[in-house]
Nucleic acid binder design. Structure first.
Lengths: 122, 122
DNA sequence: CCGAATCCATTACGATACTG
DNA sequence: CAGTATCGTAATGGATTCGG
């Protein structure tokens, strides 16, 4: 049965990669990671400002997903008013570095893509 | 008016970066770019197999968007049966390289993330 | 045959209001 | 302050149909 088990694991891995890519390759996820990339903990409200244009619902969902994936830690300080902050884990920081390439590319090529977009005749 | 114009351009650039990121940071977009990364033209149907699990509708939409952004070229061969293929442009190939980091990270860390995910108690 | 356009059910999203 | 709940709208996928 070892052979069958191995195949099963391989199949699951392909699925895992696909699913993880779908979660990571997300607009809000990338923006949140960018906002946390310096490594220091950031509060929810500060994060919402920093990301810009994200609804509470989506920010909460994105952060919960990142927390669940072990990419972000969530700390709740039981004070009034409430204080919750988020910080990249080591795994999260490594993702931040991997994501850097896309970020740089987008910033470098946004103008060129926009130009192509305007010139495009469909 | 130069100052105001410059500010307007700067504002638009920030918007352009955000919008482009939203289009690029998309599950299907990344998978399509991955499938085209070797540089050779690929047919629609082959692309659909290669990506796996994408509907015709979403694949068409993704390809049109990539074409519009100048990242992919679309060639129609007027033969029967029809033959349409897609190929990365130079800009598209540069994006492919930038995206490579995420792809490598996901493949390298999918198992670790899944482990964290299973161990997570929310 | 291949790829695009259309209809329909499901889901995701954004804005608002409300709670601890 | 940091969420949760709700609701209307938009995006998505599947099945089907159309066009060349």
């Amino acid at each position: 049965m070892d052979t069958i088990d191995s195949l099963a694991v391989a199949t699951d891995n392909a699925e895992l990669v696909r699913e993880l890519l779908a979660r990571v390759a997300d607009k809000w996820t990338l923006l949140v990671i960018e906002a946390l990339e310096h490594g220091d903990p950031v509060r929810f409200s500060r994060l919402q400002e920093s990301v810009g244009g994200v609804s509470q619902k989506m920010l909460t969902k994105t952060l919960r997903q990142l927390e669940r994936d072990g990419l972000v830690t969530r700390r709740v300080h039981p004070v009034i008013p409430p204080h919750v902050d988020y910080q990249l884990t080591e795994l999260g920081r490594s993702l931040g570095e991997a994501v850097c390439g896309i970020w740089i590319w987008v910033e470098a090529n946004a103008a060129a893509v926009d130009k192509a977009r305007r010139a495009f005749v469909g």
